[in-house]
């Protein structure tokens, strides 16, 4: 099922609950045991008709940093998950929790950073994709929504986004343990 074709939204993932203009299911009714069925993603595949190498993608990033007169850009290598609000009663926004993030300086130097979350509104963020590379990676996980947790996969090439918002992660005020870890004496 092609959902977005050449950047244009064509279809929705549908269960047997019809919506205006989309009268039939396309086999995406999914649920966790004990929940009611709703339309959910299965394997989401992002493909690009224009591909560059990873090195070239980073070069494009450096060019954009210089053009925008920014001190550095960000390179997200791995994430642990995230969530998106999709209800109509609150503003739609996503929050992605990265685990491996680098600052990339205009001179190409990379520096590991911590404590940032990726945030934004889905339509704006994804309309700012300016390039994709040829390294396809697959994310396997479980996705939670009205019909519970279902296993999902998503695959995508590396993406260059011209503008993105980040925020500081929540920080714990808890004290670290008072005593050091117990010594490793004793057998077994």
């Amino acid at each position: 099922m092609t959902v977005v074709d050449k950047g244009i939204l064509k279809n929705f993932l549908m269960s047997r609950a019809p919506i205006e203009g989309f009268a039939h299911s396309n086999g995406h009714g999914r649920r966790q045991q004990g929940y009611k069925v709703v339309a959910r993603q299965s394997n989401l595949v992002v493909e690009s008709s224009k591909q560059v190498s990873r090195a070239e993608l980073k070069k494009l990033l450096l060019e954009q940093i210089k053009a925008a007169n920014k001190p550095y850009g960000l390179f997200f290598d791995d994430i642990e998950g995230g969530f998106t609000f999709t209800q109509r009663i609150i503003p739609n926004a996503f929050n992605v929790r990265p685990t491996l993030v680098y600052r990339i300086y205009p001179d190409g130097k990379e520096e590991l950073v911590r404590g940032v979350d990726l945030i934004g509104t889905p339509l704006i963020a994804f309309s700012k994709i300016s390039a994709a590379d040829d390294q396809i990676a697959v994310f396997n996980g479980v996705c939670g929504a009205e019909s519970g947790w279902v296993p999902v996969s998503a695959s995508s090439p590396g993406l260059l986004v011209s503008q993105i918002e980040v925020q500081r992660k929540e920080k714990s005020q808890e004290r670290v343990p008072i005593l050091p870890p117990p010594p490793a004496m004793g057998s077994k």
């Binding site: 343990p177 490793a184 057998s187």
Partner: peptide, 13 residues
């Protein structure tokens, strides 16, 4: 031994 002690260490803390 080590893991059990570690669990008691954190719980006591």
């Amino acid at each position: 031994y080590r893991q059990i002690r570690r669990d008691f260490w954190l719980a006591t803390d």
